[in-house]
Simulated scan of single mutants.
Amino acid sequence: MKKLMFASVLALGSLTAFAQQDAQSVQGEGTEVVATAQDNYSEIAVDEVPAAVADAVEKNYPTATIDKAYKNEENQYKLEVSLQDGTTGTLYADEQGNWLEQ
C-alpha cells in the first residue's frame, strides 16, 4: 500500500511540474510578441499626426477620437482610437493616410 501511495504522489508531482513548464513558456511567448510590436514605434503627441492621417480617421471613422499616437522610422503611424460607443481599437497608416495591414 505504501508503494502505491508513493507512486501516486510521484506521478502527480510529475504532472504538476510539466503543467507549470507549459504555462511559463506560453506566458513568455505572449510577452515577447507584445514587446516586439511596441519596439518599432515611439509615442508622439496627437497633434503631431499629419493632417492626411487625421483626415483618413475622420473620413473612415467619423465617431473616432485619437487617444494616443505612435510613429516608427518608416513614417508609419499607429493610432489608438476610441469610438463614441466605447469600443477601442488600433489603426495603422502611412504618412499619406493610407491604411496598413498589421
Results as ranks from 00 to 15, higher is better:
96 Q>P: 00
75 N>F: 05
65 T>V: 08
57 V>G: 01
6 F>L: 15
5 M>G: 07
3 K>S: 15
92 Y>R: 08
96 Q>L: 10
57 V>Y: 01
40 N>Y: 10
29 E>Q: 05
17 A>Y: 01
26 V>N: 03
72 N>M: 06
60 N>W: 04
1 M>S: 15
6 F>N: 10
76 Q>E: 12
1 M>Y: 15
85 D>F: 00
77 Y>K: 06
67 D>E: 10
71 K>Y: 05
39 D>Q: 14
1 M>W: 11
45 A>L: 11
73 E>C: 03
64 A>L: 00
28 G>D: 11
83 L>W: 05
48 E>T: 03
66 I>Q: 05
85 D>Y: 01
43 E>G: 07
52 A>D: 09
27 Q>V: 09
69 A>D: 02
3 K>M: 13
45 A>P: 03
90 T>N: 07
20 Q>Y: 10
27 Q>A: 15
15 L>H: 09
71 K>D: 03
87 T>K: 10
53 V>M: 07
2 K>A: 11
20 Q>G: 13
17 A>R: 05
61 Y>F: 08
61 Y>T: 00
20 Q>T: 12
63 T>F: 02
66 I>L: 04
51 A>N: 06
37 A>V: 11
37 A>T: 06
44 I>K: 05
45 A>R: 05
18 F>Y: 13
22 D>I: 11
24 Q>L: 10
32 E>A: 14
83 L>E: 12
59 K>S: 11
98 N>Y: 07
101 E>W: 04
12 L>R: 09
34 V>W: 09
65 T>N: 07
74 E>A: 13
36 T>E: 10
58 E>G: 15
4 L>D: 14
49 V>S: 00
83 L>I: 07
72 N>K: 00
97 G>K: 03
31 T>Y: 12
61 Y>V: 02
19 A>C: 05
16 T>A: 15
42 S>R: 10
90 T>L: 01
55 D>F: 00
2 K>W: 10
42 S>Q: 12
77 Y>S: 04
99 W>M: 13
91 L>E: 01
20 Q>H: 08
10 L>V: 09
90 T>R: 01
68 K>F: 04
38 Q>G: 08
7 A>G: 10
97 G>F: 02
7 A>F: 08
9 V>G: 15
12 L>E: 14
89 G>Q: 06
8 S>N: 14
2 K>T: 11
9 V>H: 09
1 M>N: 14
72 N>E: 05
48 E>M: 03
67 D>S: 05
